[in-house]
Structure formats: C-alpha cells, structure tokens
Design a protein around this nucleic acid. Structure first.
Length: 199
DNA sequence: GCTCCGATTATCT
DNA sequence: GATAATCGGAGCG
C-alpha cells in the first residue's frame, strides 16, 4: 500500500480523531519541513466556529471536497492560514495547522520570516507557519500526497493536551485545540477579540 | 513574561 | 459596512 493511501485512510477518520494524530506529523514544502506541535479541529456545518458553518461558499469550497487537500484562507487583510481537509467527503471538516517546529531548511525559513526573533517563533502561529513554509493562495486545494508540498504522519504522540480554540467568538467553549506539552513553538492562547470600548 | 493597539482587505451580510 | 481561525511593535513589570 503506497504511503498516499495510508494518509488518505488516516485523514478520512472523524476530525476529532484526526486532529490529535496530526501532532508530530511532518509538513514539507520543498526543502523546508516542520513538525506540527499545535492544531485545532473544525467540525463542518455543525460547528459555529467553522468557516463551513453557513454552508458552502466560493471561499470554503475546498472544505467540502475530499480529505487530504489543503484549505488555505486569507484573513485580517494580510495573513494566510492552512487547514488539512479531513473526514468523509462532504463533511466539510478540517484541521487548522497552528504551530510547528522547523526541522529542515531552517535558513530558508528564517529568510521568509525576518521578523522572527528566535527559531521557535518561525512557525509559532498559523500565519507564521504558512509564511515559514511558503504556503499561500496558490496552495488552496492542493493534494498533500503530491510533491513538493506533502504531509507525513508520525506515530501517535502519547502526551496530547487539549484546550479552547484561539481567537474564536463563537463556540469558544469546545476544547478542540490540541497541542504537545513543553514545546516552545506552541502559540500563545488568546481568547476571542476583545470588545473595544464597550462592556 | 504580559497587555494594548494598528495594519490591511477578502468575504459575507 | 462590519468582521476576521493574526501579527508585530510599543510599553510595562
């Protein structure tokens, strides 16, 4: 059985099973590779925190397709973030890649992330992760079994922590953020945007 | 380490 | 027209 079939079988499982299993996996784009340390699950139309909550739109259409493809979206007027589509086709579930440790091509990653003070900041946060790996709009819909941008699962990590998802206004109570303990690359938890000038 | 705040625009209501 | 699955810099401790 080719590795690509393994990956698909893994990713077709329910998103809440897939998300913790992606911790420790290697995401590679050409010569830069990283080991995932933090992810979040988004459970399709059932999940008020998901981009799929209000049904299909041009932006989220990749989420409604088959597992194993990348859903890349643009946010806050300047940042790209990447998700791995998972679950059965049509479930519109996905795992947001929130943080990682660079394990190969660190010089290239540094030059893409001039603002990073330390190596642990290179892929600390979903938009930083995309920047370090050179992921952008051209990768929306990309099949992760296809070079040069690939995902290689690892053995399941023993010690997986969970907590609330970062930056969400809705469904902030669901503990669907998964991360590895004692990893310097895990991003800081921030609750949903503060209400400015209003109690 | 923390908190506050501005940047900047695709997307959807 | 409002919002957003964020980031970096300034200021404080």
């Amino acid at each position: 059985m080719p590795p690509s079939a393994d990956l698909r079988t893994l990713l077709e499982r329910p998103v809440l099973e897939v998300a913790p299993l992606l911790l420790g996996a290697t995401l590679r784009n050409g010569k830069v590779a990283c080991r995932l340390t933090e992810v979040e699950a988004y459970d399709g139309p059932n999940d008020p925190g998901s981009h799929a909550y209000r049904g299909p739109t041009p932006r989220n259409s990749v989420m409604f397709g088959p597992a194993g493809h990348l859903y890349v979206y643009f946010t806050y007027g300047m940042h790209w973030c990447a998700n791995v589509v998972c679950g059965l086709q049509g479930s519109a579930s996905a795992v947001l890649l929130r943080a990682a440790e660079i394990v190969d091509g660190i010089d290239a990653a540094r030059s893409r992330r001039p603002a990073a003070r330390a190596d642990r900041d290179l892929a600390r946060g979903p938009a930083r992760l995309c920047q370090a790996l050179g992921i952008g709009r051209e990768h929306n819909g990309h099949d992760l079994t296809t070079d040069p941008l690939t995902l290689e699962p690892s053995r399941a990590c023993r010690d997986v922590r969970t907590g609330p998802r970062v930056g969400l206004r809705d469904a902030a109570d669901r503990p669907w953020r998964f991360y590895l303990p004692d990893e310097p690359s895990v991003s800081a938890y921030r609750p949903a945007a503060r209400l400015r000038g209003r109690p």
